[in-house]
Design a protein around this nucleic acid. Sequence first.
DNA 1: GTGGTCTAGACCACT
DNA 2: GTGGTCTAGACCACC
Lengths: 131, 131, 131, 131
Amino acid sequence: MLFHIDTHSSSPIYEQITSQVKEMCYTGLLRPGEQLPSIRELSSQMVVNPNTVSRAYAELERSGLIVTIRGRGTFVAEVLPERSTPRERARLERMLRRQIIDSYYGGLTREQIRDVTEHCLNELEAPHDGN
Amino acid sequence: MLFHIDTHSSSPIYEQITSQVKEMCYTGLLRPGEQLPSIRELSSQMVVNPNTVSRAYAELERSGLIVTIRGRGTFVAEVLPERSTPRERARLERMLRRQIIDSYYGGLTREQIRDVTEHCLNELEAPHDGN
Amino acid sequence: MLFHIDTHSSSPIYEQITSQVKEMCYTGLLRPGEQLPSIRELSSQMVVNPNTVSRAYAELERSGLIVTIRGRGTFVAEVLPERSTPRERARLERMLRRQIIDSYYGGLTREQIRDVTEHCLNELEAPHDGN
Amino acid sequence: MLFHIDTHSSSPIYEQITSQVKEMCYTGLLRPGEQLPSIRELSSQMVVNPNTVSRAYAELERSGLIVTIRGRGTFVAEVLPERSTPRERARLERMLRRQIIDSYYGGLTREQIRDVTEHCLNELEAPHDGN
DNA sequence: GTGGTCTAGACCACT
DNA sequence: GTGGTCTAGACCACC
């Protein structure tokens, strides 16, 4: 299990972790019931504060993606929760739109934006496209 | 000129303002040389603090999209800012990439992402594709 | 008499005027007793607000470089005042120093800075180097 | 680390701070990776408002000289910012030129101006002359 | 502990 | 009237 953390990114570290775990779950890289590394293990591997990993796990548990069993460890949930509500998807569309405008304004051409989009979509695993 | 701010959004108000001004400039809603609402005017219309609008305008000026003239007001720049540096463009590509991944794993389908992208690009006026 | 005004400059317009009048006086382009253009004349020629020219003239008069005779007009003083006190010169050195550091940091090489300096000094007329 | 601010100066406090930090970086007083005083620390030491220091740090970060890491602090960048754009360099040359002219007509001799320039350039460490 | 954002309100410089 | 700077103090997110 490989994580990639950028301490200089504008998005918080705990979010980088949750986002990557989420991605691994939905692409099947992490299977239901599989055990996640412990907080201490992961934090030392990533060279981040254990509190930060702890917070990431807490958020993931709250969203139902993982479950913690006291004294045993942390595991991927047997049934994955719904990915999002229509409202959240509308929000994502707005954010994507804003990001594209910013990119365009910032100096990327239409072609570059299309290339990034296509390249990026092609790289993604194909999980539950429909839900 | 209508602005819409969402006080519950996670992105700061000044960024919502800059984004909307950028958009207006590139969709042609704001024309080169046109005067923007004064800080006090906009701040009272939006019910936010003048400092917040001031910060948004300052960032827009720094990026070269608008020009302020001492004691007279704020205007859309006559010439669009020059092409950004490779480093900045790389940063924008990374951010766009991240946004697409988040959208996908947040529940948007490939088709929805392509649609938003195309729709958005089509709306934009042709500004600096060639410079 | 030709003035050059940049409304986008960071230094105020009235200061651009006073600085240029001062320069003309000390280089001999404007001779003692010579009449300056009227405020209305100058303001319409420069396309700036008459109040701005008025303020510039007021400052010049306060520093003793020009004199206004009611109903007759504005004239260069017969005897030019001392150019500066040691304290002011120390201040100028500090500002120059700061500007050089900013230039260097901002991307100019040592050679470019030396070139600008030499080129600039060579262009200047040679008035009262000693005072 | 000693800062000196002049509340009577015409240049804003936040600019006095950025200038001094720049200078410390380029004279080697501040080394890459080194931590800067925290905003609250510096603001109380200087007896200015934390917002003012915050603004100075923000500008320095924007120019790439320093890096702030969420919740940890502010550090001198490991790699110096890349070469600025031609437009920015032209702007710097104009400002330098103006400062030299003002210095000259403000009472400094050619020799004094050359001395300040050379002395100042010699103090600076060799940073990005080659990039 | 760190920095980031926002408000409220003051004062100043410029046109 | 315009924008720019600064203060005082609040609240939040992150580590």
